[in-house]
Design a binder for these strands. Sequence first.
DNA 1: AAATGCAGTTCTTTCGAAAATTTAGTCTTG
DNA 2: CAAGACTAAATTTTCGAAAGAACTGCATTT
Lengths: 252, 252
Amino acid sequence: MATTAGGRRIASEGAGEPATLGEAAYQHLRTDIVAGALEAGKPLRLEALRQRYGFSFSPLREALMRLQSERLVLSTALRGFSVAPLSRDEMNDATETRILIESEALRRSMRDGDDDWEAAIVAAFHALSLQVERQSRISDEVDAVDMHAMDERHYQFHRSLIAHCGSPRLLDLADQLYVETQRYRLPCLVGRVAGTQARDVAAEHQQIMDATLRRSEDAVRHLAEHYRRTAATIEASMAWPLPAQSDIRLPR
Amino acid sequence: MATTAGGRRIASEGAGEPATLGEAAYQHLRTDIVAGALEAGKPLRLEALRQRYGFSFSPLREALMRLQSERLVLSTALRGFSVAPLSRDEMNDATETRILIESEALRRSMRDGDDDWEAAIVAAFHALSLQVERQSRISDEVDAVDMHAMDERHYQFHRSLIAHCGSPRLLDLADQLYVETQRYRLPCLVGRVAGTQARDVAAEHQQIMDATLRRSEDAVRHLAEHYRRTAATIEASMAWPLPAQSDIRLPR
DNA sequence: AAATGCAGTTCTTTCGAAAATTTAGTCTTG
DNA sequence: CAAGACTAAATTTTCGAAAGAACTGCATTT
């Protein structure tokens, strides 16, 4: 097995082969939770997971542990794990926290960013634009593969903005919140007819980038609006699971 | 700290006995890392930990996994774990991130806080004051037990300020950063002669509380200064391990 | 009927050993 | 003597089964 450099568990890390089964399990589970293949709120029985993925208990447990600390999985002491439920409150909390973190990171990047940083932003924006164009050219429907390619570019663009903030913690938190909010974004993308959006997301990105390169505080405002608008769109269009009474278990 | 910092993890956790060995291992390891009993930078060999704590591999691994995502432990794919090193950069990053998070949480608490919230702050402040007084009365030297009692009150006070922010994520992050920064604070407290401090920490706390109850933005400023002053004090007084060349391993 | 108590079952958690990989040491070779 | 190759030891990772706790359904009691 080819060893991957053990970087922090960032969203883009998945590229190389995972060095351990635990890592592999983590990646698979995370992908499936984010994509909704493992339904929100449902319990994650170890035996079922073993059959589904072919990992044995130890790596699975390890993966679930990690996912728990990223808020994708819940666990109760002797009752096992479950997929973290989706809710308006969680989404909004995640969105606002993301805005807090990324605003600060963006400010710092704008303060200290160098030419390479700027160049990377322009490049990422371009790559994202190309992807959008290609997609609308090739097919009307957005399928899972397109969606992931798209999402990767989208991630790279947003990350490039804050990349020069100088704080490993902020970048880490941003990554984590990106993944969390992905759970809410992705379901709304699949099956959507390309170009249907009322919003001009591309224009929003352009606005953010331009203001960022101008080192203008407008960038922060645009970014926040961008995220809030996305959250609002999702909140409106999503079929929210009403918090089931039966799922609520009093601790002991 | 009576309550585990990562308050979300387990429903029934808290002060009581940990329900599983994994949880117990987590608590022990965390305590020992924060207190410096497990030296920063040193590798954590599973066999050694098994002998020291009496837990077998599975619970230990689980605990280490959790600690890794809280930045107290590092791990590399097939080379095991080590205690996360201490450094000026990490401390400052943690401090600034903490300020970012708690400032926002404090603002929200001040915006929405009710009478109970205010009462809890006053109570926590009082408890902290009593503890400080008792300590300086009983003995000159600060020992480990005093230190923990003190730290618990201190934690409760700071937490009471932001308790009403309404965001589970912010509270969680604040808890995590509290623990992280504890690694830097605690070593500076042990052995210190009580009342020696040039700073009047009690007065700083009073200032923060007063401004908070007035719902004044000053509270945020005072809080930030409080944290920065602490960081500066530590930065000056601590014997920093110089980043050893030999510890650096290139990942292939 | 509601509450209580009691098997049997399901599921999580833990253990100890086996497998896989890295690390250290030794020897060889150019 | 440095670089490489091989071997042995140390260490992590993984497995599968055993142990322990929670859940289910049913009978019993109030």
